[in-house]
Amino acid sequence: MTSTFNTQLHSLSFAAFILREIMDHPQEDETPQSRLKQVGMMSILYIMNQGHQALTISNLVEITKLTRMGVSEVIEPLLKRGMLTETFVKNSMGRGKARQFEIAPEIFEKLRAFGQSS
């Protein structure tokens, strides 16, 4: 029972942290709509991360039903903010390169520090 509670608490902490970071710190030339899309994308990325799914453009297109360009438009500001890191890996066919993302470890470090101070 405790582990379920901890998982829920971690999810709520993550969501609250992301919401505050994005909404309270607008980037130059960024609209409220863009920030809201970023919050939603981070929520999807977190759920994928918890499910051990690869955070790739293709997987995001499949889940969100956005176009590749639509996904990229939301991902770019998150990379700029430092909330995501990006690496290039071989694509599913093993020939070309695919962009793979990871939620920045610093976010989880801040969440752990917050949990210890409570």
Rank of each mutant, 00 (worst) to 15 (best):
L78T: 00
N59H: 08
G40L: 12
F14H: 06
M41V: 07
M83A: 06
Y46E: 11
K97H: 05
E86V: 09
I107H: 01
R95H: 11
L84G: 01
R35F: 04
K80E: 13
K110L: 09
R112V: 03
M42P: 00
L55Y: 07
V39Y: 15
E76R: 13
G94K: 09
S72C: 05
R20Y: 15
M41H: 04
L45I: 02
V61L: 09
Q53P: 00
V61S: 03
N6S: 08
S72H: 06
T87Q: 03
S34G: 10
Q100R: 04
I75A: 08
K97W: 06
E62T: 11
V71W: 00
Q38S: 15
N6F: 07
R35C: 05
H25S: 14
Y46H: 09
H52I: 05
R99Y: 03
G82T: 04
S58G: 11
P26S: 12
A98G: 03
M83R: 00
I44V: 12
L45S: 01
F17V: 07
G51V: 02
I103S: 00
M83E: 01
I44R: 12
L111F: 14
G70C: 02
L111A: 09
S72G: 04
G96E: 05
L12K: 14
N59M: 07
A54N: 03
R95T: 13
L55K: 09
L111C: 08
K90L: 10
Q33T: 14
S11I: 12
H10Y: 09
R68T: 08
E102I: 10
R68N: 04
Q27E: 15
Q27S: 12
V71H: 01
I63L: 13
L111S: 07
E73R: 13
N49L: 13
T4P: 07
I44C: 06
L36Q: 10
Q38V: 14
V61F: 08
R112I: 03
L9Q: 14
T56L: 03
T56P: 01
L111E: 05
S43Y: 08
T85M: 11
D29R: 09
F114P: 00
I18M: 15
Q33F: 14
T56W: 04
F14E: 01
F108S: 05
E28N: 15
L19M: 13
I57Y: 00
E76C: 03
R35G: 06
A16L: 13
M48P: 03
H10W: 05
L9Y: 14
P26F: 07
Q100F: 02
K97D: 03
Y46K: 08
M23I: 15
K90H: 06
T56V: 06
E30L: 12
T85Y: 02
K80W: 10
H52C: 07
L36H: 13
P26I: 09
F108K: 05
A113H: 02
P26V: 11
Q33H: 15
F101Q: 00
I47K: 15
A104F: 10
I103K: 06
T7M: 04
K65F: 13
R20G: 15
G96F: 05
L79N: 01
